Simulated assay, not measured.
Amino acid sequence: MEELIQIRQFIQQGKLNEALQIVDELEEMSLSDKINKIDSYGVILLIHLIKQNAEKRSTRSWEISIQNSVREINKINKRKKTEGYYLTNEELLQILEEGYPIAIKRAALEAFEGRYEAEELATMVNRPAILSQAIELFKI
């Protein structure tokens, strides 16, 4: 709220460059927030895709979690007014790749009742296929 007051003051004073700098900062903060949310849902998505890949099965709970994660990521990534997206498939893939190590650790706690360490589970799954499957679910 303070930023909006500052923008108004700068505009009234004719300091457009200063006002635009604050707008740029607000846009960057907004995008950063969206990326953080996408990362969180991306990790959840990967956990369930990893479990499916490792155990060669699925459950209703996993399917619903996958659907919910995809829905939320698509909702967060969708630009409301311009009908575009904030992040490209390449940028989404980068976020998923960065979240993959966390997802494999968390999936190791759940897959096969937690019998395998993250490193062992990682050798049991096809990382590129999982990442590819995740990107395909976004349909951008």
Rank of each mutant, 00 (worst) to 15 (best):
V125I: 10
I135F: 00
K139V: 04
Q133E: 07
L137G: 02
I135R: 00
I130T: 02
L121W: 00
E113C: 10
A118L: 08
A129E: 12
L131E: 02
A111N: 05
I130F: 04
E119A: 12
R127T: 07
E117W: 13
Y116M: 14
E119S: 15
R115A: 12
T123W: 11
I130L: 00
G114S: 11
F138V: 01
L109N: 13
R127D: 05
E136T: 04
F112R: 08
E120K: 15
E110L: 15
R127S: 04
Q133T: 08
A129M: 14
L137S: 06
P128L: 11
A108V: 13
K139I: 08
F138P: 00
E113S: 12
R115W: 04
V125K: 01
F138Y: 10
R115I: 09
G114V: 14
A122N: 09
F112P: 07
I130R: 01
L121P: 09
V125P: 06
R127L: 10
A118I: 09
A122R: 11
R127N: 07
Q133D: 11
F138W: 04
Q133Y: 06
K139F: 03
P128A: 02
F138A: 01
I130K: 01
V125L: 07
L137C: 04
E119D: 14
L121N: 01
F112A: 07
Y116S: 10
N126D: 12
T123V: 08
P128G: 12
T123D: 14
L137V: 03
P128S: 09
I135C: 01
Y116H: 13
L131M: 04
G114R: 09
T123L: 12
Q133P: 01
A111V: 06
L131V: 01
A111Y: 07
M124R: 13
M124H: 14
T123F: 08
S132P: 09
G114N: 08
L137E: 02
F112Y: 15
L131R: 04
